[in-house]
Computed example of a mutant assay.
Amino acid sequence: MKLHPMWQEYPALQADLSASLQLMEKSLKLKNKAVEDAILAMIHSGGKLLRPAYQLLFSSFGSDKDHEKAVALAASIEMLHTASLIHDDIVDHADTRRRLPTIRATFGNDVAVYAGDYLFVCCFKLMADYASSMKSLQMNSRSMEKILSGELGQMSKRYDVDVTVADYLENISGKTAELFALSCFIGAYESGASLRFANQAKEIGQSIGLAFQIMDDILDYSQAADHLGKPVLEDVRQGVYSLPLLMTLKTDRARLLPLLAKKEMMTDADTQAVYQLVQNGQGLIEAQTLAAKYTDNALQAIKKLPETQDQSKAYLYRITEQILGRTN
C-alpha cells in the first residue's frame, strides 16, 4: 500500500497509517461496486494523511496504549476528511482532485452526495465502536457543525470584495482548522490524557490548521495546477477570495475591482491578471507573515509538551515544520 513519500522517514507511523487505510477499505461495503471503487481510488490517491497522523502521534501522550483503537480512530478521522472533500467537489463543481477525476465528475452530483454521506456514516460507526467516551462523539459532531459553519460562512461571502481578514480566518477556522484540532484532541483524549492536555493538543491543531490553509491559499498564487492537482485560481472565478487576494485588495483595489466584478464570467486572461497583481504586490508576503505566526504558535506549544519514549514529540515538531514550510 503506497503512502505519500514524506512518511518514509517515520516507519512506525507509516505502518500505522497503512493499517488505518486498510481498515477504511474493510469498512466500505457498498452494493454499487463502481462507486465503492471510486471512493477507494480517492482514499489511495496520494493524500498526505496529515489529520490521522496527528491523531496517532498525540495518542502516544496518554497512559492508554490501545494500538487498535488509535488506528481505528485515525481511520475515522480520514473518513470524515474524505467525505468533506467529496462534498466540497460538488459545491465547487470540481472535475479533478489530486490529479484524478472527482467522484462527481465521474458519477454525477447525486452519487457523489451519497458517497460522501456514506463515509460520514462509516466515520461515526468506527467512532462509536472504539471511542471510550461520549466526549469524543460530542467533539466529533460539534466539529462537523463547525466545519459546515465555515463552509456556509465562505459561501455567504462569495463575490464580496469587502470580506475582511477576520471573516476569512473565521471561515477557515471551521473549514480547515477544526479537523486538525479534532484530530489532535481525539488522539490525546482517547489515549487517557487529561482533558486539560487534550485541550492543549486541540489548540495546537487549530494553529496548525490555520497555518496550513493559509499556506494552501498562498500556493494557489505560486504553483501551477499540475503541481497542486487542482485548478489554480478556480476559487477566484467562484467568488472565494483567499488571504493573498484580500491583502492585495487593500493596496491595489482600483485594478482588481474591475476584474473581480466579472464574477463567473472571468476569462483565463482575467484570472491571470489577478494572479500577476497578487504576485507583484505585498499580498503574498503579508499572508506568509500571518502563516508564520500561526506556525510559530504551534511549534512553541509543541516544544512545551512532555517527552515521550517513542519520539512522538520530536516527530510532531519535525512534521509540523515540514508541512508548514512546504512549497507544494
Results as ranks from 00 to 15, higher is better:
Ser207Thr: 12
Asp117Cys: 12
Ala225Gln: 05
Ser173Lys: 11
Asp235Arg: 02
Val165Asp: 10
Gln8Gly: 12
Gly174Leu: 07
Ser191Asn: 06
Ala41His: 07
Lys33Asp: 13
Leu299Glu: 13
Lys33Cys: 10
Asp220Trp: 08
Val121Ala: 15
Leu245Gly: 00
Arg98Asp: 04
Gly205His: 02
Ile147Asn: 09
Glu178Arg: 12
Glu264His: 09
Leu277Pro: 05
Ser132Ala: 11
Asn328Tyr: 13
Ala211Val: 08
Gly153Glu: 07
Ala269Asp: 15
Ser149Leu: 13
Arg99Phe: 02
Phe120Gln: 11
Val113Gln: 05
Gln282His: 04
Tyr159Trp: 14
Leu49Asp: 01
Met247His: 05
Phe197Pro: 03
Met134Pro: 05
Ile302Ser: 07
Ala12Thr: 13
Ile90His: 11
Ser76His: 03
Gln309Pro: 02
Lys262Pro: 07
Ile285Asn: 10
His87Tyr: 08
His87Ala: 10
Leu195Asp: 14
Ile319Cys: 08
Thr251Lys: 07
Leu233Arg: 05
Glu307Ile: 12
Thr271Trp: 00
Ile218Pro: 04
Val71Asn: 09
Ser27His: 09
Thr176Glu: 03
Tyr275Met: 13
Ala70Asp: 04
Glu234Tyr: 00
Ile77Gln: 03
Ala224His: 12
Phe180Ala: 09
Gln14Leu: 11
Leu182Gly: 07
Ser45Cys: 08
Thr176Met: 04
Arg158His: 08
Tyr114Glu: 12
Phe58Cys: 05
Gly209Cys: 10
Lys48Phe: 01
Arg255Tyr: 00
Leu259Gln: 06
Lys157Gly: 04
Ala112Phe: 07
Glu234Gln: 13
Tyr114Thr: 12
Thr248Lys: 01
Val163Gln: 14
Tyr221Arg: 02
Tyr54Pro: 01
Val161Phe: 05
Ile43Trp: 00
Leu28Ile: 14
Asp92Met: 02
Ile86Asp: 08
Leu246Gly: 01
Arg97Ala: 05
